[in-house]
Design a protein around this nucleic acid. Structure first.
Length: 869
RNA sequence: GCGAAAGUGGCGGAAUUGGUAGACGCACCAGACUUAGGAUCUGGCGCCGCAAGGUGUGGGGGUUCGAGUCCCCCCUUUCGCACCA
């Protein structure tokens, strides 16, 4: 056995062993319960970052733990390999996105392997391979056939200089990121997926996900945004049509004093045609900021259209205004305005002198006919007043009565409205799944027949930032129409990369399947038992995946509703931020690795200096590791210096998985120190105690010695705690339980007895197994070195020996009036009378009882005694 | 503004059902060994206090023999949504 712990040697040996034994190959086995553990697959950006290390370590701990528990585990890995950064890299470096991507994958795969994850690499997939994305195309065509995919126009950011469409993140302050040109909004044809058809199911399905964080479910529910209300038609006063609005407050209909439409509403356009001033206003609204956060604080502006509508119930003539606070994208793009009971309408009406009519009172009889002007809108629910035949009703009654009255006149009905929009998947980009459509002069938009799939993306393009590279490729664009054979033009848009990630977890069940999108293996492996990823995917990726799975279900491809049974959202990795303000008012950031902290003799931070010049820097607190703050730590440097096990141990020990993790060099040192200590202890056992085991001995030895029994109890207590904590995903205390076990074994009486050797042999076998999910390499190595039987992977999870936990005598906490006054030692089975007598006789207690009458003695068995005086 | 989560030593964080608050680790202090140590080992370490003791889980109240944990009010922070009709 090596004298010193050498992670490099230990880790290479373990990894080689796992590879030669194909230790992590997952094979369907109906006789065993399966455990499918999945961490969100990485985008191959170049190299791993700390977030990856944390993400995959969490998944690996769970995978290895459940394997030891006897589950048939599967942990796959793949690459979310399409996307914009590959094109940006191509523009910057002149290499093709394909080359860049495949190079990155090769490097990151090596990094992942060096971390020793129990991954079945036979199942690896990359979404940019035709074998994968052909099924994106295939399913898209199925959706098209069923009306779940459709084409309509959508608005995009257009860079007039580069003649290209930009993603939102490429638009900075309204200008193109490369050209600095003012971005225009353009309407172009795009394909959409009808996720709204599943809105209700995606919402109600959340109730069937007890293993998801409440926070994520709430975010999804808000995103879907179901609201039930009433659709109300306001006939035009000139009889040429109706203005339809949606309201959740139909009870306030009698208080409507005007209607307002969005600038993009057809009625606004119609009015603007005859009114140049209005046309200018509408145009100004269009050019205004589209940032939603800006909209919320924007001043309310509007202009009368000159149009009037008729109130559907009262018959009153109401003016129609164009207002910037009405969104075209929600409901009908038009609202009925009730200034008395809606804050936005109130603000608008007050500004433009529109009438306010109050029709809701807080409760029956409380309403007073207070004369205008009112100071505020009353937006709460209440009782209808001054509403003619609808007066005196509560909210539900009023909505029912008004909806019924509208329905009789055929001017309205109850309806459910969702905030969720259909999913636009067209991207005017090169590095993505080609949309399998051919545009033919004669036949129109023709789907590519299944037997011509996949539509292969040429991999040798090098985008230069202008236009769409695919459109410049005659060999890609020019194609015979599948229907009539005439020369036609292939669609050059590609799919949103969220399509790729919406079903990769299904494909892992059968990555080699070349005939079908998925096969029966899905029935075995799915749903994913544990999904792990960042909270940033709480909405889009997870919602799209739930939608896509249901579409596949309805096509008969899979038999499940929800793809992810349990979800763990890991916290972000933070590091300190240090900076200096330069003369120009700029801020220069310094990497924490180059900064020394200064502390006082209590260990409190009093300042920080840059090592290079010894001068002070300002501390900016903790923030997520990022390039802009210059506070990133490269995991590779960590692995190279300390090894994968130290990195893994630190990550698990420092914070519970869902919380943010604060990076700390000292913390890494601590983890490393512990592993060294473990190695040294094991070596000492190997050399001095293990030889004793060869001698036939009395197994009861450890139990007979009370100090050794206490030590053994400590080990089993910590085993119990660690098992409990693994089930609830609190890995930091699992790591600390391991440290406590080592401390306990280390403190066991030093006599070189057989009994002690037996105790340590058992203790180490438990410790190594408990710790092996976290630090698999060192545990594998020590397991072998110490001569335990077989592969630790197959050793099984240790069982708690309940008899080891039993004590003959127990310590009880002694309280007087609820305050700690000492401890008493009593027999395990002492009855109340004995405990009470012992407690009252305790000198520590007597000092505080001091002759006062005893009111009561509370005894909590096995825990404490509280004497109340 | 709405919604959710969280506030515990100098720091990361423990405390399973109300039952010894601060486990484990980091930092810090003292000591040992050492040519040296940023190695290793031993001890200490919430705050006030020489001590006895007091006090302490964001603040205030309550329930209880007993509250970090349960109830009410308030404050702060983080995250999400944000003119959604």
């Amino acid at each position: 056995m090596q004298e010193k712990y050498n992670p490099r040697v230990v880790e290479q040996e373990a990894q080689r062993h796992w590879e030669t034994t194909q230790a992590f190959r997952a094979v369907e086995d109906a006789s065993r319960p399966k455990y499918y553990c999945l961490s969100m697959f990485p985008y191959p950006s170049g190299k791993l970052h700390m977030g990856h290390v944390r993400n995959y370590t969490i998944g690996d701990v769970l995978t290895r733990y459940h394997r030891m528990r006897g589950r048939n585990v599967m942990q796959p890995m793949g690459w979310d390999a399409f996307g914009l950064p590959a094109e940006n890299a191509a523009i910057a470096n002149g290499v093709s996105p394909a080359t860049w991507t495949y190079d990155n994958i090769a490097y990151m795969r090596k990094q992942l392997r060096s971390l020793g994850f129990a991954i079945d690499w036979d199942r690896e997939l990359a979404t940019c391979s035709p074998e994968y994305y052909r099924w994106n195309q295939w399913l898209f065509l199925r959706m098209l056939e069923r009306g779940l995919a459709y084409k309509t126009t959508g608005v995009v950011n257009w860079d007039p200089v580069d003649q290209t469409v930009l993603a939102n993140e490429q638009v900075i302050d309204g200008r193109g990121w490369r050209t600095g040109a003012m971005i225009e909004k353009r309407e172009i044809p795009m394909y959409y997926l009808r996720i709204t058809a599943y809105a209700e199911e995606l919402l109600s399905g959340l109730d069937a996900l007890p293993g998801w964080p409440e926070r994520v479910k709430t975010m999804q529910a808000n995103w879907i945004g179901r609201s039930s209300g009433v659709e109300v038609a306001f006939p035009y006063a000139d009889g040429t049509g109706v203005l339809t609005v949606f309201t959740t407050r139909a009870d306030t209909l009698m208080g409507a004093t005007y209607c307002a439409v969005a600038a993009e509403h057809p009625l606004a356009a119609r009015a603007a045609a005859q009114n140049p001033e209005l046309a200018r206003f509408v145009e100004a609204c269009r050019h205004g900021s589209v940032m939603e956060a800006d909209l919320a604080t924007m001043e309310k502006k509007g202009m009368a259209t000159g149009f009037f509508v008729v109130h559907p119930l009262s018959g009153a003539k109401l003016p129609v205004w164009v207002a910037n606070y009405v969104l075209m994208g929600y409901g009908e793009g038009a609202v009925m305005a009730v200034p008395a009971h809606d804050e936005r309408d109130f603000e608008f009406a007050t500004k433009y002198g529109l009438p306010v009519r109050r029709v809701i009172a807080s409760q029956t009889g409380a309403y007073e006919s207070v004369a205008a002007p009112w100071q505020d809108a009353y937006a709460d629910y209440g009782v209808t007043v001054d509403s003619g035949q609808f007066s005196g009703l509560d909210f539900a009654q009023a909505v029912d009565a008004i909806a019924a009255a509208l329905e009789r006149k055929q001017l309205g009905r109850k309806r459910v409205q969702y905030r969720l929009r259909d999913w636009g998947i067209s991207r005017q980009r090169y590095w993505g799944t080609p949309i399998p459509i051919v545009h033919c002069e004669a036949c129109g938009d023709v789907p590519v027949p299944d037997d011509q799939l996949p539509v292969v993306l040429p991999e040798d393009c090098v985008p230069d930032g202008s236009g769409n590279p695919l459109a410049k490729r005659a060999d890609f664009v020019s194609v015979a129409c599948p229907r009539c054979g005439q020369l036609a033009r292939r669609e050059t848009d590609t799919m949103d990369t969220f399509v790729d990630s919406s079903w990769y977890f299904l494909r892992y069940a059968c990555p080699q399947q070349s005939q079908r999108m998925v096969d029966e293996a899905v029935d075995y492996w799915l749903p994913v038992d544990q999904y792990i990823g960042g909270i940033e995917h709480a909405i889009l990726h997870l919602l799209y995946s739930r939608f896509w799975t249901r579409v596949m279900r309805d096509l008969g491809l899979v038999r499940l509703d929800e793809p992810f049974a349990n979800l763990l959202t890991q916290g972000m990795v933070l590091n300190e931020i240090f900076f200096r303000r330069t003369d120009g008012g700029r801020i220069a950031y310094f990497n924490p690795a180059d900064v020394d902290a200064q502390v006082d003799d209590k260990g409190q931070r009093i300042g920080a200096v840059l090592r290079a010049d010894g001068a002070a820097v300002e501390a900016g607190g903790m923030g997520t590791m990022s390039k802009s703050k210059n506070n990133g730590v490269d995991p590779q440097a960590l692995i190279d210096e300390y090894g994968a096990d130290t990195a893994r141990f630190f990550m698990m020990f420092t914070s519970p998985p869902e919380q943010t993790l604060a990076w700390s060099d000292a913390g890494v040192e601590g983890a490393s120190r512990y592993l060294k200590k473990l190695w040294a202890f094991a070596r000492e056992f190997d050399e001095t105690m293990r030889p004793l085991l060869a001698i036939e001995g009395d197994r009861a030895g450890a139990a007979a010695d009370s100090a050794l029994a206490a030590c053994r109890r400590e080990v089993h207590l910590n085993l119990k705690q660690a098992s409990y904590d693994l089930e609830r995903h609190q890995f930091n205390t699992v790591a600390s339980a391991c440290m406590k076990m080592l401390n306990a074994l280390d403190r066991a009486p030093r006599a070189d007895s057989l009994a002690r050797a037996q105790l340590v042999a058992e203790g180490l076998s438990i410790l190594l197994r408990v710790q092996s999910p976290i630090t698999p390499h060192i545990c594998h190595g020590l397991w072998r070195e110490l001569g335990y039987a077989g592969d630790i992977l197959d050793a099984g999870w240790p069982a708690v020996d309940e008899t080891a936990l039993v004590q003959d005598e127990i310590d009880l906490v002694l309280q007087v009036n609820g305050k700690l006054r000492g401890n008493i030692r009593v027999a395990r089975d002492a009855d109340r009378a004995v405990i009470e007598r012992t407690a009252l006789g305790d000198p520590g207690a007597q000092r505080f009882i001091a002759g006062q009458p005893i009111k009561r003695v509370v005894i909590v068995p096995g825990r404490l005694v509280n004497v109340v005086v």
